[in-house]
Each structure stands twice: as structure tokens, then as C-alpha cells.
Amino acid sequence: MKFTADLAIDWMTKANQKIQDNKDYLSSLDQAIGDGDHGINMARGFDAVMNKLGNNDYEQVADVWKESAMTLMSKVGGASGPLFGTALLKMSMAVKGEAEVDDKTFVEALEDALAGIKQRGKAEEGEKTMIDVWAPVVEKMNEAQTVEAGVLRDTAESAMEATKDIVATKGRAAYLKERSKGHLDPGSVSSYYLFAALAETLEGEG
């Protein structure tokens, strides 16, 4: 892959589309095990990201991701803001100075993002958070040392579906304990949209 700033913008644009289209769905998931604002939070955050990206020129992937990260941290409002923000910030640091990001560096960036989310949320895999989507995706990409659209989408999708069976021990859903079981984790669903959008961006390039 040769991932450029234009592709990075395309990724954010497609992610925004999915989030806006599924805003109510995401909030309804959060209603079941949280405070019901996840769709509103993400839609507000990505709306602001699109505004920012549309009004500036970017030469480097790192700049696109950094700008997106900062915007999400200030506009999302909920836990997902600092978490997705940290993820993109770590990714931007990993690709700093590169006009075209190759597979190897992209995989490293994803690894750093996952480490960043874990550190920020003080959470691990199996606690019914977005980590349960990020971790398997990163693991798969790491094994292959390439970012392949089909694998990316499938891995994210099945990981997202698997969060249904987990009992939450982190985030607001943890207050529900056993009752959090049987519901998808909202942040895992929006993480799936993010990866599905990335898959589309990569396919468009192929």
C-alpha cells in the first residue's frame, strides 16, 4: 500500500458517513448498557473532523490523523473522544514525516494505537470495550504484516459481534455487571465502522 494524506482524508470521510448513517443505532446500543449518547457523541465529533479537514490542506498522513485526533478529543465529549483521539494521535506519531505510508508502517501505527487505547482506558481485552475490536484486528494485521481490506473488515465484524457475549468490567457498562451481557458494545460497533471504512478506502485504491 501507499497510504497518502488524500487516502487518510478519504478514510475519515467514509467513517463519518457510516457514523452519521448509524447515529441513532449507536445511541440505541448505548441506551441499553450506557447513557445513550454514543451516536450523538461520535456524530458530533466526526462532523467537526470533516469541517476541519475540509478547510485545510494536508501534505502528510500524520497531519490528517493529528488534526482528526485533536478534534475528536475536544468535540466528542464522552469516553470515546479521548480513546479514539489517542488512537489517531499515536498513529500520527508512528507515521510522522512520511508522505506515503507502507504496510509495515501502517501495521506499526495500528499497534501503537491499540497500546494507546489500552493505556488511556486502563483496560485490557475481554472487558467489553472497543479494545475487543482493536486487539484482534491488530493481531491479524500483525501476523500478515499487510493491511488487506477483506481480512480487515471480516476480523473487525466478527470481533464486534463477539462483544455481545462479554460481561463489561470497564466503562459505564461495568455498572450493569452481568446485565451488560447480550448487548453489543457501542464503541466496538463504531470501531467496526472505522475499520470497514478503511477497508473501503483501500479497495477504492486497489
Binding site: 449518547d37 475536544s74 468535540k75 465529549g77 464522552g78 473522544g81 479521548p82 483521539g85
Partner: peptide, 13 residues
């Protein structure tokens, strides 16, 4: 809260 007074926290604020 957020800039527009909505519920949440803002890094910038």
C-alpha cells in the same frame, strides 16, 4: 461540559 454547553468534557476547555 462542551463548548455549546452540552454534557461531556472537552480537551480544549
Amino acid at each position: 461540559g462542551l463548548e455549546d454547553g452540552e454534557i461531556g468534557t472537552s480537551l480544549e476547555k
